[in-house]
């Protein structure tokens, strides 16, 4: 059964050019982003708004590069401390949505690249 992927690697392919480069970039993404996601979850539990913004800010560029369009606007809701405060009541949902989406992305990437 064919599923719709939540990412689009065309831009990344365009930048790195070859298979090896792509494999390496995807590996880095799959290894490094979950660590930031874990930090984000931890900071959510302790209500550390500044660090939540920092984590979101750090993930933003990678998310954009992987063309995970469903997270494009969502991650920008919390990428600055003042925005985190604005969306304080929805924080749990926002972070939850980011995690579910990314987990799905990681799973698909692992499968596609045999990681």
């Amino acid at each position: 059964m064919k599923t719709n992927k939540l990412y689009d690697l065309r831009q990344l392919i365009d930048i790195v050019g070859d298979e090896d480069g792509l494999q390496k970039m995807v590996t880095i993404f799959v290894e490094s982003t979950p660590r930031i996601m874990d930090d984000l979850n931890e900071n959510l539990l302790t209500n550390n708004f500044e660090m939540i913004a920092h984590n979101a800010h750090k993930m933003k560029a990678s998310i954009d590069m992987m063309k995970i369009v469903s997270l494009h606007d969502v991650i920008r809701k919390i990428d600055k401390p003042e925005k985190v405060l604005e969306n304080k009541t929805d924080l749990k949902e926002i972070v939850g949505f980011i995690k579910i989406t990314l987990d799905s992305v990681f799973a698909d990437l692992k499968k596609e690249f045999s990681l």
């Binding site: 930048i15 790195v16 970039m25 590069m65």
Partner: peptide, 16 residues
């Protein structure tokens, strides 16, 4: 660049 993914991407691109 502290984001390993973005840093690597830049490195790759510049190294072209």
């Amino acid at each position: 660049e502290d984001d390993p993914f973005y840093g690597e991407m830049l490195k790759y691109h510049i190294s072209l």
